[in-house]
Amino acid sequence: MPVTKEEIKRLGEIIYLDLTDEESARFADLLNPVLKKADELLEGLEEEPLRHISQLRNRMREDEVGIPMPKEKVLANAAETQDGCFRVPRILED
């Protein structure tokens, strides 16, 4: 079943991406051939899913404390700060 532009719009909401109707329609047109091809090629495969490409195992660091960044550097790239914090407009959802 092809993806609809309404569905694309809903996906946009999930990943916090405002989409115009025109964009939603265009992205639906973009996704559909890809999904169609995937439907054709991927169906019925029964291999174990390959979740990790790295063949390494058990990489860990010891629990040692290092020196954190100075606060000015932490905040240096922020668009807006206040009282040593990153400032954002009000959060309506919890």
Partner: peptide, 15 residues
């Protein structure tokens, strides 16, 4: 249908 199958395809290619 898609992500997990893609990982299976990845395994197939790997093998």
């Amino acid at each position: 249908a898609y992500y997990l199958q893609a990982l299976r395809a990845r395994k197939l290619v790997y093998k």
